[in-house]
């Protein structure tokens, strides 16, 4: 997904960001937050660079990144898809909706499509349980998202893209 040129760029960018921090292990999380803020996610090269900077095993950085929900290992897509798996959505078949998204986008949760158009993840309750099962599409909660509606949402995005393509021409 990332080529050599991009990798070098990430390494350089991370190095520049790390200059502001002292080499204390306690700085691991603030450092990672800063890097993610700048890069949008935590690529492999960035994690390796952080590990080298703090002089800790690489796996320790990876362990922290995979432990906390706030860190992402994949670049954010143009559109974010967040499937709610809170209690109400769970009862209303949130997992079935999640499976539909996974199937349609051919990615797993926490991943981004190869064209970086969509990223898929789950949330635990967004506070509008009446609308269960909920999927938050680009920060807007959509209600009653069952597999057919998943197709509908994707179709509307495709339409939009086609329209934009025509306007450009």
């Amino acid at each position: 997904m990332t080529n050599t040129k991009e990798k070098t760029k990430i390494t350089e960018q991370t190095r520049r960001l790390l200059n502001r921090f002292s080499r204390k292990r306690g700085n691991l999380i603030p450092t990672l937050q800063k890097v993610q803020e700048e890069l949008g996610y935590l690529p492999r090269e960035a994690m390796l660079e952080v590990a080298r900077f703090l002089d800790i095993p690489e796996i320790d950085v990876y362990g922290v990144v995979t432990f906390y929900n706030q860190f992402r290992l994949n670049p954010p897509g143009k559109h974010s898809i967040r499937v709610c798996l809170g209690t109400a959505c769970h009862m209303k078949g949130g997992y079935i909706t999640l499976d539909a998204w996974k199937r349609r986008l051919s990615i797993d949760r926490g991943q981004t499509t190869a064209d970086r158009e969509f990223d898929l993840d789950t949330v635990a309750c967004v506070g509008c349980c009446v609308m269960a099962p909920v999927t938050v599409v680009d920060d807007k909660p959509a209600g009653q998202v069952e597999p057919t509606k998943v197709d509908g949402i994707l179709l509307s995005f495709e339409r939009e893209r086609e329209k934009r393509g025509k306007e450009k021409r």
Partner: peptide
């Protein structure tokens, strides 16, 4: 002092 192994995920 290698540290190849560790815990990850939650």
């Amino acid at each position: 002092g290698i540290g190849a192994l560790g815990f990850a995920h939650r």
